[in-house]
Amino acid sequence: MAEYGGGCCRCCFSFIITSGFAALFMWLSLRTSKPDCSIEKFYVPALNRSADINSTNNHTIYFDLKLDNGMKEKGVSYANISLNFFYNSTHLPIANYTVPGFYQGHKKNTHRRQLLEATGLPWAAALEAVSNGSTVSFRVELATRVKYKIMFWYTKRERLEVGGDVVVNDTGKKVNRKNIKLKSGSPGPASHWVRVGPLLILTSFIIVFL
C-alpha cells in the first residue's frame, strides 16, 4: 500500500513538473515583442546655414527610417506603413509617405530612406529660428498593422502606432546623434504576454493540484 502511495506521489510530481514546463514553453513560444522603429537620419537642406545659398530654396526633407525585429525565432509581416510629418511647434502637416508592406525575418533590421517635398512649412520663420541659435522640431508619426510569424503560422494583425520628435539645428540635421526612437503610449504585445504568461503558468499548476 505504501509502495502504491509512493508511486502515485512520484507520478503526480512528475506530471506537475511536466505541465509546468509545458506551460512555460507555451508562454515563451507565444510571447512577441513589437519591432523597434527609429529615425536614424533626418536632414532639412533649407535649414543648413553653412550650405550653398541655393539650398534655402530646397524645400525637401530626407529621412532614414530603421525597422528592427529583435526576436530570434519570430518574423514580422508589415502592412503598408503610413508616415506623417509635422512641423512640431504648430503640429502643421507638411509631408507624408507610404512604405509598401513587407516581411522581415528573425533578428533582421531594415532601412527605408526617402526624400520628400515638404509643403506648408513656414520656411522663413524656421530659418530665422535656427539662424538665431535656436532649434526647430519636427514630429514623425508611423502607423501600420503587423502580424507575427511563429514557426509555420501567423498571429492576427495588430495595430502599431508610434511617434517621436526630431530636433533640428542650423546644420539642417537632427541635434541628437543617436537614433530617435518612435514610441507608443499604449502597451504592445510583449507587455501583454509578460503580464499574461506567468498567470497561465500559475493557473496550470493550480489545475494540476486540484
Results as ranks from 00 to 15, higher is better:
G105R: 14
W153G: 00
T60N: 05
Y103G: 00
P100M: 02
H59E: 08
S77M: 08
V76M: 01
K156P: 06
V168M: 10
R49M: 12
F63I: 02
G120Y: 12
A126R: 13
N132C: 09
Y97G: 01
N80H: 05
S184F: 11
K183V: 10
G185I: 11
P35G: 14
G101D: 01
L200Y: 03
I201P: 01
G101W: 12
S137G: 13
A118H: 04
F25Y: 08
E3Q: 07
P122D: 12
Q104S: 05
S204P: 01
S134K: 15
N179T: 04
I206F: 12
A143H: 06
N54D: 12
F15C: 15
L92C: 03
T98V: 13
I94Y: 00
S89N: 14
S204N: 07
P35N: 07
Y4F: 15
E40G: 08
I180V: 14
R139D: 09
L30M: 11
G20I: 11
G163W: 00
Y62R: 03
F25M: 10
F152W: 12
P93K: 02
F21G: 01
L47K: 14
G101Q: 03
W27S: 05
G188N: 14
N57Q: 08
N58H: 06
F13C: 15
L92F: 04
S14K: 15
I180F: 07
G6V: 00
A125W: 14
V208Y: 00
L30R: 07
T203H: 04
G6M: 09
F15H: 13
G197I: 02
K181H: 15
S186F: 12
H106F: 06
K178C: 05
K147T: 06
T98I: 13
S191K: 13
V146A: 06
S204Y: 01
L92A: 00
I16P: 00
S19F: 10
H192N: 00
E128M: 07
G5F: 15
S33I: 06
N84G: 02
A118D: 04
H192G: 01
N48E: 04
L92T: 15
R10S: 07
P45T: 02
S191N: 09
H192K: 05
T171P: 04
N109T: 11
L160M: 14
G20R: 04
D36Y: 02
V208K: 09
L24A: 12
Y97H: 11
K41L: 14
G164L: 02
E3S: 09
N132Y: 07
I94N: 01
L28F: 13
F205A: 02
I17A: 12
R10Q: 15
P93Q: 08
K149E: 10
N57W: 05
V208H: 14
K183D: 08
T98R: 06
G105I: 03
L202H: 06
S29D: 09
T18V: 14
L142V: 04
G120E: 05
G197Q: 03
L142G: 01
I180H: 06
